[in-house]
């Protein structure tokens, strides 16, 4: 399905660049999901898509709709705020669940609850 909005050339260039870089960033992030070795390294990979990738694609959408309707359309900012606020929450929960599971299985590469005793004052 080859179809596109009817934008003037300058807007088309901006939207195209934002879209391509955003999609490439997201793809690089998920490539890390394939390629990194351990779970704790892989958790870092999707944050590429949720920060820069999402921001660029949403910016492209904002520019496109604002030019098409010739008024500022910024409701994509809601998705942006939502994604940036919720991804840390899910990743933190997931990391804590993983570390809890690894500890209960006695994995050696995971820090235990109290490795660094604070010296008595």
């Amino acid at each position: 399905m080859i179809q596109g909005p009817d934008l003037p050339t300058w807007a088309a260039v901006i939207v195209g660049l934002l879209l391509l870089t955003g999609a490439t960033t997201t793809l690089i992030g998920t490539l890390g999901l394939l390629q990194l070795k351990s779970f704790y390294e892989r958790v870092h990979a999707p944050t590429l898509g949720t920060t820069l990738g999402a921001a660029l694609i949403l910016a492209a959408s904002m520019v496109s709709f604002s030019v098409l309707q010739s008024r500022p359309v910024i409701h994509e900012i809601l998705i942006g705020v939502f994604v940036t606020l919720t991804t840390p929450v899910t990743l933190m929960l997931l990391a804590r669940a993983a570390i809890y599971r690894d500890r209960s299985e006695g994995a050696s590469r995971v820090p235990t609850d109290g490795p660094r005793r604070t010296p008595p004052a």
Partner: peptide, 13 residues
């Protein structure tokens, strides 16, 4: 012209 270009870019992304 710019519409076709943009359509291709959107499809590739």
């Amino acid at each position: 012209m710019s519409t076709l270009f943009l359509a291709l870019v959107i499809t590739s992304s």
